[in-house]
Amino acid sequence: MQKRDGDMMSILRKIKPNLNLVANVPENNLLERNVPEPVHPDVTEKPALRTPTVLEKLVDVADFFWELIGGQNLVLLVSTDKVLYARDGKLTRFNLSAGDEVKPAWITARAMKSGQRMVDYVPVEKSTFGFPYAAMAVPLRENGQIVGAFTVTSMLEKQVEIRGHAENLTLSSSQISGASQHISEMAMTLAGATSTLNSEMDNLTSNMGIVGTAIGLIQDVASQTHLLGLNAAIEAARAGEYGRGFSVVAQEIRQLAQTVNQNISQITSGLGMMSGGVENTVGKIAELNTVAQEQAAVTEEISATMQTLRENIAALEKMSKEAWI
């Protein structure tokens, strides 16, 4: 039995030459002990992996984001008190660096304080770059707490150009609206004048009717006068030598009646032509009045359309100021 235990110990020593045996343990009891396995010198325990924070993740992708938005704008990432990442745009130089202190006046600090997205518009007269720009800051949260903020800026040359065009359109539309309003007023004045003229032409037509009636009466008198002269001539012929002087008067009366009849015929013909002309004029005036009223209505529609255009231009100008990314 002792010989077999000795053989087993020899085998174990060959397999595990570095085995540290417990002191005072007899070799023949070694197989009956729970001896701990030795730690291999090349094996080390790996620490658990730490999850990156939101700020660390954003720092890793900040350069990519700067390129993504065209490289024209400042990209700024801060913690609650320090700059973690800052990269200027190609035409803007804010000269910020990692480690700089966050100033309370920055939109970044104000966004963190308010806990809301903020946008600042810097007009050209207040800009140090010679052109207007805008800045937007968004607070960053982790586990419900604000841990920093992300800020970008944008140049607004195109928006300013759009605003300039919008202002020119506004001015032009105002001028057109004023002109159309003036045309509308003139059209209404013309409509009123044609209405008055139409009324006057109606009065003229009525007066011409009265004149025609008077001419008819004169014509009747002339006919009776001619008949009277004829009768006087007959009586003068009967009187013989005594009626010769009266015969001359009767002849003059007949000639006067004939002249009156001729003049009345000419006047009647002229009145007829005038009456036709008046009727045509009245018709034209009525057409002109209709056109003037339609023109006034159209100019009113133009004015309303121009007002809508001005409102749309104002909305476009507002959008050009707000929509900067």
Score class of each variant (00 low, 15 high):
214 A>T: 13
221 V>P: 00
284 K>G: 13
218 I>R: 00
316 L>R: 08
198 N>I: 01
295 Q>F: 14
293 Q>V: 12
302 I>K: 06
215 I>L: 14
222 A>E: 09
260 V>W: 10
267 I>G: 13
319 M>G: 07
202 D>I: 03
193 A>D: 07
239 A>N: 01
228 L>V: 12
224 Q>R: 07
257 A>S: 04
235 E>C: 12
313 I>T: 10
223 S>F: 04
191 A>Y: 01
237 A>R: 15
248 V>W: 13
291 V>R: 05
309 L>M: 02
316 L>K: 04
201 M>N: 12
217 L>R: 13
198 N>T: 15
245 G>C: 06
268 T>W: 03
279 E>I: 11
199 S>R: 02
216 G>R: 01
230 L>Q: 13
255 Q>S: 06
281 T>L: 11
301 E>T: 08
273 M>L: 15
199 S>Q: 09
214 A>M: 01
276 G>I: 12
226 H>I: 14
207 N>G: 02
277 G>A: 14
305 T>C: 09
312 N>K: 10
304 A>I: 12
195 S>W: 01
292 A>C: 02
262 Q>G: 10
304 A>K: 13
305 T>D: 13
234 I>H: 02
276 G>H: 11
223 S>Q: 06
288 L>C: 08
288 L>H: 05
195 S>M: 03
224 Q>W: 07
289 N>V: 04
259 T>A: 07
200 E>G: 01
212 G>I: 07
202 D>F: 04
212 G>P: 01
265 S>W: 03
288 L>N: 13
314 A>N: 14
306 M>D: 14
266 Q>N: 09
199 S>G: 04
292 A>V: 02
212 G>W: 02
194 T>G: 03
217 L>T: 11
261 N>C: 05
193 A>H: 14
251 Q>E: 11
298 V>D: 12
316 L>D: 07
307 Q>G: 07
305 T>P: 07
280 N>C: 05
205 T>C: 01
306 M>G: 05
312 N>P: 10
254 R>D: 05
292 A>G: 02
211 V>L: 07
290 T>I: 03
266 Q>S: 01
216 G>T: 06
245 G>P: 11
216 G>H: 02
275 S>Y: 08
301 E>I: 09
232 A>D: 03
263 N>C: 08
189 T>W: 07
201 M>I: 08
300 E>H: 14
231 N>T: 10
308 T>R: 09
304 A>V: 04
197 L>Q: 04
274 M>T: 01
205 T>Y: 14
204 L>R: 09
213 T>N: 07
219 Q>A: 10
283 G>E: 03
261 N>Y: 00
227 L>D: 15
302 I>M: 15
228 L>W: 06
197 L>I: 01
215 I>D: 03
299 T>F: 12
305 T>F: 10
313 I>F: 05
269 S>G: 15
280 N>H: 10
224 Q>C: 05
257 A>C: 07
289 N>I: 04
292 A>Y: 00
224 Q>E: 09
269 S>F: 13
235 E>P: 02
219 Q>S: 08
287 E>V: 11
299 T>P: 12
201 M>L: 15
282 V>C: 10
196 T>A: 03
204 L>Q: 14
274 M>E: 09
223 S>C: 02
191 A>D: 02
311 E>A: 14
218 I>N: 06
251 Q>A: 15
295 Q>V: 14
295 Q>D: 15
190 L>M: 12
282 V>S: 09
225 T>A: 06
288 L>W: 04
263 N>L: 11
196 T>Q: 02
316 L>N: 09
203 N>Q: 06
269 S>N: 11
318 K>W: 08
204 L>F: 10
